[in-house]
Simulated scan of single mutants.
Amino acid sequence: MSILHRAISALQRSFQSKEEIEDAYLAGSVDIYDLERRMRALDQRDTQEPFHLRHSI
């Protein structure tokens, strides 16, 4: 394995994916009502955010 390949792999592991961040956010809910509120907030964010900005770097 080249040094560049190992460096890129190490960088990718150090950043959380969007799914991991959202799962941690939902897991932090204190009860079912808080969980539902957080789920609605994520859904609203996804529908209000422009498509080209949602999938940009």
Rank of each mutant, 00 (worst) to 15 (best):
S29W: 05
D34Y: 15
R38K: 12
S14R: 04
R37V: 13
E19A: 02
K18W: 02
I32L: 10
R13S: 03
L42N: 08
E36C: 09
K18E: 01
Q48G: 07
Y25Q: 08
H55M: 10
S2Y: 02
E22C: 05
I8T: 11
F15N: 00
R38C: 06
Q12D: 09
E36G: 05
D31T: 14
Y33A: 12
L53V: 07
Y25G: 04
E19W: 05
R45C: 04
Q16R: 07
R6Q: 10
R40N: 15
E20K: 09
Y33N: 15
I32H: 12
G28V: 05
S14I: 01
R6P: 00
L35V: 11
R38Y: 10
L11G: 04
S14T: 01
L26Q: 07
R37I: 12
R45T: 05
S29Q: 12
E22D: 08
L53T: 08
S17T: 10
E49I: 01
R54V: 06
H5P: 00
L35E: 10
A27H: 09
I32E: 13
S17A: 12
R37N: 15
E19R: 02
E49F: 01
S2I: 01
M39N: 12
E49A: 02
Q44L: 10
E49H: 06
L42D: 06
I32G: 03
H5M: 00
T47M: 03
S2E: 03
H52S: 05
I32P: 00
Y33S: 14
Q44E: 11
D31W: 09
S17R: 08
S56Q: 03
S56M: 05
E20N: 09
A7C: 01
D34H: 15
T47A: 06
T47V: 06
F15G: 01
E20P: 00
S9Y: 05
E36S: 10
F15K: 04
S29P: 03
S17D: 13
L35K: 12
A10F: 00
L35R: 06
S17P: 04
Q44R: 13
A24G: 11
A24F: 10
P50Q: 11
R54L: 07
M1H: 05
D43E: 04
H52G: 03
E20I: 08
L4D: 09
L26A: 13
E22R: 04
F51I: 13
K18Q: 03
D31N: 13
I21S: 07
E19S: 03
E19N: 02
D34E: 15
R37A: 15
H52M: 11
I3V: 10
Q16V: 01
A41D: 14
Y25E: 05
S14G: 02
A7T: 06
E19C: 02
A7G: 01
S17I: 12
A10S: 05
Y33M: 14
E36M: 07
S14Y: 02
S14C: 07
D31A: 15
R38A: 07
E49S: 02
M1Q: 09
S14E: 06
Q12I: 09
P50A: 13
L53P: 03
S29V: 12
I8M: 08
